[in-house]
Design a protein around this nucleic acid. Structure first.
Length: 575
DNA sequence: GCCGTTTTCGGCCCGACTGTTTTCAGTCG
């Protein structure tokens, strides 16, 4: 038996890095521990399977020894020393913007500050401003940050920044001096939470563009404002959205887009590759070190091509294996492959539009088929369909679809799996429905076995085509019910049940990590919006980003298929 | 602390902005 689990080992390595940072240690030594923690995290193997950690890139003899200590005893000498030397209360101070290890070290050594409370007092007594490297302005800023500490979340769910994205896109569209712009950063990479929004802007007139940005309506604070870089905070009700803008000349657009798309670790990989070629990547281009010549690129594709790589999708730029795997991303699912949305609601239950309105909206998006899947009778709060209303609705759908020869509308239902594990409709009702979704909306607090029994009952039913939002989580709001996802994936594979990536930005459920595992196990995935009104159909893009993060191939995403292919597959998996 | 097809030392991705300085360190992404 080991003294601690893998997650704890990773945390302890990160803790060592933080302590060393405050101690003012060499920055490369600090980042070495961070890198080791990351290498451990990204390796699939358990501690037991990973006999010698130093085989990992970034873990050398020293850190391997520390890992070994942690595994065997739960502690290690270095960490014990650091704990004795540095007060634990200093660690949260690293989170304050503008305070890094060096400055915290100074506060500790010269003012004997050991906690947030000490620091606040020192600011009030105006002691901080007298330290070299600090000043009155810094002191005031620190004081304000301490006041605000803990008031705002570190990362925002994508759903929280969508209004800001919409506003910023139209604001930038309206600025004449902007030649083109793009939203980069973790939003472009399709992460489910973001720290800020990173906009890159091509312009010949950064001064004018900057002025316009600073005068935008929702600006609540200016964090920094230079010649080519501006950082703002926008306020939307109680949500504060930090935004960075970087302005460049158009010739540098591709390289700055790449740079600010990140991830940081991906950039490190690319820069290392460039260095091996005697070249240097910056935001502005690629410099040939021997001659000093600066190369520019018309597109990201050209930029990658310069390094003998195909264009690497932003969603997989994790700084892990994407350079080696670059050739395998050609058949990644993309938004243009999507033929259908298979989960949505209408006025028949809790949606805002009629069947016909939703059908028209989907046709206009260029889809070739869709499914109407209102809530079942169990969900009374959502005006779920009784047996009788269900029949009538499906009759209406069958009538409607005769009007189209180029578009198919599946009859469907989002049927609850009841708390007692039974299904909401009888077999003879289900057998006439084209696309039956099963999902859990109740009794989230049941134990794992009960939840799994519910999900397995649904998978086992020949008429159930798909499990919607399989874990029930809401990002940053609730964890979901107690589902053993590995077991669900296995069951879905055995029964030919599709698992959903629900594209709603509050859900993104399955997550990318689980969807990747599902694909590896041979499970088919559907990316659906679960739209309750027109605009929510737009969420497809976020769902597809999640699918791409999961490295899903087009062939494994059923709503890239034709209606006929999906129908044939559904029939073949009935048992 | 890690690493090596310039390999056991000397680098480690690169640049903008701020606040403090008066040429730059620290922080950040």
């Amino acid at each position: 038996m080991t003294a601690i689990d893998k997650k704890s080992v990773i945390q302890e390595l990160e803790r060592i890095a933080v302590y060393l940072e405050i101690k003012g240690e060499n920055a490369f030594r600090v980042s070495a521990y961070r890198k080791a923690a990351q290498a451990l995290e990204q390796d699939e193997r358990s501690l037991a399977e990973l006999e010698d950690p130093s085989v990992l890139n970034g873990v050398g003899k020293g850190t391997a020894g520390i890992i070994d200590d942690l595994v065997k005893t739960g502690s290690t000498e270095l960490l014990d020393q650091l704990k004795a030397e540095i007060p634990e209360g200093l660690i949260p101070l690293l989170k304050l913007p503008g305070l890094g290890g060096k400055k915290i070290g100074k506060l500790y050594q010269e003012l004997n500050i050991t906690s947030a409370a000490d620091l606040k007092k020192a600011c009030e007594e105006k002691q901080v401003r007298d330290l070299s490297g600090f000043g009155a302005k810094t002191e005031e800023k620190i004081y304000q940050e301490l006041e605000d500490m803990g008031k705002r979340p570190e990362r925002l769910p994508v759903s929280a920044v969508l209004p800001a994205v919409a506003d910023l896109n139209s604001a930038l569209d309206a600025i004449e001096e902007v030649d083109r712009f793009e939203l980069a950063g973790s939003f472009r990479r399709g992460r489910e939470t973001v720290k800020d929004l990173d906009y890159i802007i091509s312009t010949e007139y950064p001064g004018e563009v900057g002025e316009r940005l600073l005068s935008m309506e929702k600006v609540s604070a200016v964090i920094s404002s230079g010649k080519t870089k501006i950082s703002l905070e926008l306020q939307y009700d109680d949500v504060i959205v930090p935004v960075d803008f970087r302005m460049v000349q158009d010739e540098s657009f591709a390289t700055i887009l790449h740079h600010f798309t990140g991830s940081k670790d991906h950039n490190v990989l690319m820069r290392q590759r460039a260095k091996n070629n005697g070249e240097k990547i910056s935001e502005y281009g690629v410099e040939i070190e021997a001659t000093g010549e600066m190369l520019h690129f018309a597109s990201e594709a050209e930029f990658f091509s310069h390094f003998d790589l195909p264009w690497i999708p932003p969603e997989v730029r994790n700084g892990t294996t994407e350079l080696e795997e670059a050739e395998t991303y050609v058949d990644l699912v993309s938004i243009n492959d999507i033929q259908a949305d298979l989960h949505m609601h209408t006025t028949w239950s809790d949606g805002a539009q009629s069947i016909e309105e939703m059908v028209e909206a989907c046709r206009n998006r260029g889809y070739s088929f869709m499914a109407i899947t209102d809530h079942g009778k169990f969900l009374k709060v959502a005006n779920g369909l009784s047996d009788e209303r269900l029949q009538r609705q499906h009759e209406e759908i069958r009538q409607l679809r005769t009007a189209y020869d180029d578009f198919d509308v599946f009859t469907g239902i989002e049927m609850d799996i009841l708390p007692d594990g039974t299904l909401d409709y009888a077999d003879d009702v289900l057998k006439n429905i084209d696309f039956v979704i099963a999902s859990i909306h109740s009794s989230f607090n049941q134990d794992e076995n009960t939840i799994m029994a519910r999900l397995e009952t649904a998978c086992n039913h020949p008429q159930v085509a798909m499990i919607a939002h399989p874990t029930g989580r809401l990002i940053e709001k609730r964890p979901g019910y107690r589902v053993d996802v590995d077991r669900l994936i296995q069951k879905a594979y055995e029964t030919g049940t599709i698992l959903e990536i629900n594209a709603n930005p509050n859900r993104l459920d399955l997550s990318a990590a689980w969807a990747e595992k599902a694909q590896a196990a041979g499970v088919k995935i559907a990316v659906n919006t679960d739209a309750h009104r027109y605009e929510m159909l737009d969420h497809m893009e976020l769902g597809v980003k999640t699918a791409r993060r999961a490295k899903l191939k087009k062939e494994n995403v059923v709503n890239t298929w034709t209606a006929a292919q999906l129908k044939a597959w559904l029939t073949s998996t009935d048992e």
